[in-house]
Design a binder for these strands. Structure first.
Lengths: 219, 219
DNA sequence: AAATATTTACGTTTTATTACGTAAAAAGTA
DNA sequence: TACTTTTTACGTAATAAAACGTAAATATTT
């Protein structure tokens, strides 16, 4: 990384923007812009020819967007890493960039030093998302995790300890007879519990009870 | 946010570090450091007294770590947002910070401007994770997404199209009568299908059938 | 100790499911 | 066309579950 410049191809449909970024980047002597492109399609071709370390792609470009290009980059120049440059930190774009296999998502209002640092970091193998973009990432991560462990409202239905225990067994596919045996209670008792649990959960059949229990992590 | 300074309490066990950060932050006239603490426990007490906008916590502190303090902050000062300050971008720490409800995770090598910008952003409600920390977030997100859509072996049991359709409805909690009505078939037919589906899945009751269908994403 | 909540349990009736066997249209494939 | 799979369907019998009502023995909390 130190004995050889980081080679970058820049893709943005505005020549002026490209020039500005290029000047900014080449101010750093570890970076060299080896090619430019005005749209995603062109970017892929240039990348194929130049095999740069990084392909910096504006999102909004004619013919082919930066996101589409990023997704196709692997088959044009496998070792080149796509970096998305964008004005917006919209969740949709960010997630699309992730899906497209981009190694970075940098906002256009990032300051120069940060930008250079980001590119160096990406070229050294890790990913980089502008700080405020990581907001999206964090939220998505949280919602992902929490979809498996939601508010844990658990107590919202105020199931008693016994009821939770029985619900758990029902969720495991145990039948009343089995549950009754393993708790050493009568089947009728278990039935009553199930009935009460369903009433508390506001459902009308066993399967919905199980679905709800699983979805809301009541077990 | 503009008419009133952002109030911050700083917690780090090294007074020198606190002073350095304090000087750096107060250079910005929108920020004011209203309290300091030398460990997590102290930080919580100071936060309780000062009700600052942000509580900036070093991870490694005696008595109580910054992560522990962040997790408990809500009950000491609900509107205060925890920001973790760390030297390491280890996945474990970052994820713990997320779990603890931190609004930010900032690396100590972040430059001054970036740091100030991050704090402002956090105080305005969004989250902020240092660019290189988002590497962790992105990776985790990617692995999460793919784990949520497993092998999708789907065809392993070679259910017929009709069987899959009925299984889907069963999973949705529909009863045979409803399914029969909506498909305009007899209840007996649906029963037969269910029976055959269970045989193919190798389960002995409806709940296990549903569990298996959900777990293995057969719907 | 009094009030409240939980756990246990039975009775009855209705509805749903499970478990097999059998089999004929209908659709798809060789 | 011949063969196979899928979808449809009935019969019968044994279980299981659901839907309500009622109520006593325990625990828990105040």
């Amino acid at each position: 990384m130190d004995d050889k410049k980081i080679e970058i191809v820049l893709a943005d449909d505005h020549a002026l923007v490209r020039n500005g970024i290029k000047a900014m980047l080449e101010f750093d002597h570890e970076i060299r812009v080896t090619g430019e492109a005005g749209n995603g399609m062109e970017a892929l071709e240039v990348a194929k020819a130049m095999k740069p370390d990084l392909l910096v792609l504006d999102i909004r470009m004619p013919v082919m967007t930066g996101l589409e290009a990023a997704a196709k980059l692997k088959s044009f120049s496998p070792h080149t890493k796509a970096v998305i440059l964008s004005m917006h930190d919209s969740e949709e774009y960010v997630l699309q960039a992730l899906d497209a296999g981009a190694f970075g998502y940098i906002l256009k209002d990032t300051d120069k030093n940060e930008f250079v640092r980001a590119l160096k970091q990406i070229s050294s193998g890790s990913k980089y998302f502008s700080g405020s973009v990581s907001n999206v990432l964090a939220n998505r991560l949280l919602s992902n995790r929490s979809s498996s462990v939601p508010p844990a409202k658990d107590d919202a239905y105020n199931l008693s300890k016994r009821e939770k225990e029985i619900l758990r067994m029902v969720v495991e596919g145990k039948q009343n007879k089995q549950i009754a045996d393993s708790l050493d209670k009568s089947v009728r008792t278990i039935e009553t519990h199930r009935f009460n649990i369903m009433k508390k959960l506001g459902v009308n059949n066993a399967i919905d009870m199980v679905n709800k229990a699983v979805k809301e992590n009541l077990v």
